[in-house]
């Protein structure tokens, strides 16, 4: 489904590459956590899949296509195969829940009848069936993220990319989001989720691809995640508190 072959991405030649010789493959129907500290290359990984960026070297394949070789008018077709969710939701503040989700269908030229039929269904999937007419500012963070997920999957993409979807949410709300993502995965969508929330990763027991300074440090099925840096930092901070 997604294959990286020795992919390196350099944004600016003076600093170290954001991704450095990454080779990995994600199969259809997998649920993969992409973990690692900030700056480890998780977001770059996702941007390369979306073809927001092109690899400096190496090849990225999505659904068998070399994305760097897609002509600019084929790129939208690639993106229709991808649903994307971000930490900051990216909803349109002047549109209500229904309209926000409908927007993703309208811009693809979907028929009104289809839209009116698909949206209640997808809102049900994310658990917002009774909030279709609320505006984003009337919703909690978790609910806003559910709207974003609904928008990402309403066109039934084969792959859902989630870049720190729980980054702005408290743990309890995060679990709600994880349930939604799990449900979408159960329906057959390949899910790639970048996160550094080790609690979620440890509980879910899915495949984990750990990035560190742009390189794949670890790639294990049904694994957990102990963020080394964070733990070390926490421990040293705790030690200092003890001394005081």
């Amino acid at each position: 489904m997604i294959r990286f072959e020795d992919v390196t991405k350099v944004y600016d030649t003076t600093s170290r590459p954001a991704l450095d010789g990454v080779t990995t493959e994600i199969e259809r129907g997998e649920f993969v956590f992409l973990v690692g500290p900030s700056g480890s290359g998780k977001s770059t990984f996702i941007r390369l899949v979306q073809r927001e960026e092109k690899a400096s070297s190496g090849t990225v394949y999505v659904s068998g296509r070399d994305v760097a070789r897609l002509s600019s008018w084929r790129v939208p077709h690639l993106r229709r195969d991808l649903g994307v969710v971000f930490q900051d939701f990216r909803l349109l503040p002047n549109k209500n829940v229904f309209a926000n989700v409908a927007f993703a269908m309208q811009v693809l030229g979907k028929r009104r009848g289809l839209i009116n039929q698909a949206i209640p269904e997808v809102l049900k999937t994310v658990g917002l069936e009774d909030k279709a007419h609320r505006f984003p500012h009337e919703l909690s963070g978790g609910e806003q993220q559910r709207v974003a997920i609904a928008r990402a999957v309403v066109n039934s993409p084969a792959i859902l990319l989630a870049d720190e979807p729980t980054g702005n949410l408290d743990p309890e709300t995060s679990w709600g989001i994880m349930e939604v993502l799990d449900k979408i995965h159960q329906n057959g969508t390949t899910v790639v989720m970048a996160t550094h929330d080790h609690e979620i990763v440890n509980t879910m027991r899915r495949r984990v691809v750990e990035l560190h300074e742009g390189q794949v440090m670890r790639d294990e099925a049904e694994a957990g995640y102990q963020p080394a840096d964070a733990t070390a930092q926490l421990q040293s901070r705790l030690r200092k508190t003890e001394v005081n």
Binding site: V75, P76, H77, R80, V84, R90, A104, V107, L108, N155
Partner: peptide
Amino acid sequence: GIMRLVGASKTM
């Protein structure tokens, strides 16, 4: 931004 994200065509 959202249009790009969901794969709206250049024309759109």
